[in-house]
């Protein structure tokens, strides 16, 4: 399911004295099956952008095309439900939405809203819980008794249980320890590779962008300022610095090495790429030193 934005402007509280424009003239494409990363400083409009992907927010001007649906400012709130099932949206700090008596019931809540029977939903919930790495023994507990990381997984499972075609995640790893981060990124990657899900991920972790993304969208002050492959986006180091965007660790390291006389072409994005280019140069240097 392809998604396209055409000349989208969005104002919060449009038509009141508190109106604030959060998106300016956004034109972009999110290709089906790809892993798209959205990056940008805090307050740049990333969360606003992605809430258009399942019509939680409707453009104040312009249109958003989601598969065979076109969302315009006039679109009525009715009949949006099928869309919400196709595009699953995991909010920032999704653990704040848990409410059921047990973890299992909470995960099954979404599917049941879409008319799936209780037993079916239960089965689905167990499968997704396993997928996100929640232990069987936790499923009958209250979601409020879980640790932060476990709550996060339960909340993600609650959206995954809808079996969406497109999975949108708003900083799913924020505030987690490295292990939790790796698990969640591994899950997202698995969903894209094995289940052919289209992934849209908001993140501040440039290493995740470098490692996983096919396509990067850069937001700044409500504008989309760049889009392209990670290699294209991370190649312009001066521009990134200007916009206070970080580099992936490997790229930053390579940059420091360039100052010391090493050369890289192309600029490495991941630790592997860095090693591949560095080893021959070090070997040569070693030979020269012992020369």
């Amino acid at each position: 399911m392809d998604i396209a934005f055409e000349k989208v402007n969005y104002w919060y509280q449009a038509g009141t004295p508190f109106a604030v424009q959060a998106l300016y003239d956004i034109n972009l494409n999110i290709p089906a099956g790809a892993f798209t990363a959205v990056i940008g400083q805090t307050g740049s409009g990333k969360s606003t952008l992605i809430q258009h992907l399942n019509a939680l927010l409707k453009p104040t001007e312009g249109q958003v095309i989601i598969g065979d649906r076109t969302i315009t400012p006039e679109t009525k709130n009715k009949h949006l439900k099928p869309l919400r099932k196709k595009v699953g949206l995991v909010f920032q700090f999704p653990e704040n939405q848990l409410f059921e008596e047990t973890v299992l019931k909470d995960i099954a809540f979404g599917p049941q809203n879409f008319g799936i029977s209780e037993e079916e939903a239960d089965k689905l919930a167990r499968q997704t819980a396993k997928m996100v790495g929640l232990d069987e023994s936790l499923l009958e507990r209250s979601p409020f008794d879980l640790s932060g990381g476990q709550m996060r997984r339960a909340a993600i499972a609650g959206v995954l249980a809808l079996e969406p075609d497109v999975l949108v995640l708003d900083e799913p790893t924020a505030g987690l320890d490295p292990r939790g981060r790796n698990d969640i990124m591994g899950l997202v990657r698995h969903l894209q590779a094995e289940k052919q899900l289209t992934i849209v991920l908001i993140t501040h972790q440039m290493d995740d962008v470098a490692n996983y993304a096919d396509h990067v969208i850069v937001m700044a002050h409500g504008h989309m300022v760049r889009q392209g492959t990670p290699r294209e986006v991370f190649s312009d180091v001066a521009w990134l610095n200007e916009n206070q965007l970080e580099l992936p660790t490997a790229t930053a390291y390579a940059n420091q090495l360039i100052q010391k006389g090493f050369t890289f072409d192309p600029l490495p994005l991941t630790a592997d790429e860095l090693a591949d280019q560095l080893v021959p140069q070090l070997a040569k240097q070693g030979v020269a030193d012992h020369g």
Binding site: Q51, N54, L56, K81, R84, K85, G88, L89, F91, P94, N96, Q97, F109, G110, N113, F114, G158, V159, L162
Partner: peptide
């Protein structure tokens, strides 16, 4: 916060 939670539940199919 109420608005955020409502949106999160809408995303899970609440009307």
């Amino acid at each position: 916060e109420a608005e955020k939670i409502m949106n999160a539940q809408r995303a899970r199919g609440v009307d």
